[in-house]
Design a protein around this nucleic acid. Structure first.
Length: 289
DNA sequence: ACACTATCCTGCAGGC
DNA sequence: TGCCTGCAGGATAGTG
């Protein structure tokens, strides 16, 4: 569920409560999410200060005193909620099943931060901070899509010789880390590239990026930045940490809009939906070639 | 190496 | 109303 804009929105919402704060107690209400929790997980967190709350790809990283980092992934349905006696945050009613409240962080400030995850595809683990980059989850991760490393030359190298469709390549976290189904569909529509097109065919023989590929990095960055400004997209689960909804879903041009008129100016096409590797792809066959 | 699938889990929408 | 099927923002292990 949460792609980069949603995870970053969560990070920004949690940072005022977590970063610099001390964890006094952690309630861990089950033994596993996607994976088992680390041994003595709750006990190892108790009493520790969170030095910084960062994001890499779709991971939230809480650097703790004692040189360990709490790594958190929201999977498809994970979310955090802040409540308790916190100045600056309203107390919003529980609108999700408490049965899926799996972890509660009790902060010294009085804030409670609750992790809810119905599908339990999310996970948490503890990694020594200096070993993070070498950790198996992180060492193969691709570039941050909002960083300078993502440009047309990078994409030309990444796509060269690849038979896989553009959609699959953009979803591959080993190339670009942070995109998911929604923003890949939206970015490809914005630059007029068909999600079905083989990656290699978007690169010219001379090795220079094609015009279409040259537009792709900007399309990716723009859609992510617009989504960030909107607090992410709220379809089913995503909420900002203060409980408010993201609203970028109202700005989708193709995602979940099968049958709608293509919003590209002058285009007479209709948004289509196809399955690619078992997942829905939305695109306009008229203006995405 | 690469491409594709099945799979983890729950909730919800749509069809009958 | 209820039962059934399929689908959902992710990522990996396993297959050919």
């Amino acid at each position: 569920m949460p792609e980069l804009p949603e995870v970053e929105t969560v990070r920004r919402g949690l940072a005022p409560v977590l970063a610099g704060g001390r964890i006094v107690r952690v309630e861990q209400r089950r033994g596993d999410l996607r994976f088992p929790f680390p041994p003595d997980f709750a006990a190892r967190l108790a009493g520790r200060r969170i030095l910084d709350l960062r994001r890499r790809a779709k991971y939230l990283l809480a650097d703790l005193d004692g040189s360990e980092t709490l790594v958190m992934h929201l999977g498809m349905s994970g979310s955090f909620r802040i409540d308790g006696d916190v100045q600056g945050f309203f107390h919003h009613p529980r609108d999700k099943s408490a049965a899926h409240d799996h972890v509660v962080f009790h902060m010294e400030s009085g804030a409670r931060v609750t992790y809810n995850d119905p599908r339990r595809f999310g996970f948490m683990l503890l990694v020594p901070t200096k070993e993070l980059n070498a950790h198996k989850l992180f060492k193969g991760l691709g570039v941050e899509p909002l960083g300078e490393a993502l440009d047309s030359a990078f994409l030309a190298r990444a796509f060269k010789g690849r038979a896989a469709p553009a959609k699959a390549l953009l979803l591959d976290q080993r190339l670009i880390a942070g995109l998911g189904n929604i923003y890949v569909c939206e970015a490809l529509h914005r630059c007029g590239i068909s999600p079905l097109k083989a990656g290699g065919k978007l690169v010219t023989v001379a090795g220079k990026p094609s015009a279409a590929l040259a537009r792709l990095p900007e399309a990716i960055k723009k859609v992510l930045e617009e989504a960030l400004a909107a607090g992410g997209s709220s379809l089913r689960d995503h909420r900002q940490a203060d409980g408010s909804l993201g609203y970028f879903q109202h700005s989708f041009r193709v995602y979940d809009r099968e049958g709608a008129a293509c919003p590209t100016p002058g285009c007479k096409g209709t948004v289509a939906r196809v399955a690619q590797s078992g997942r829905s792809t939305f695109f306009c066959p008229e203006c995405q070639k």
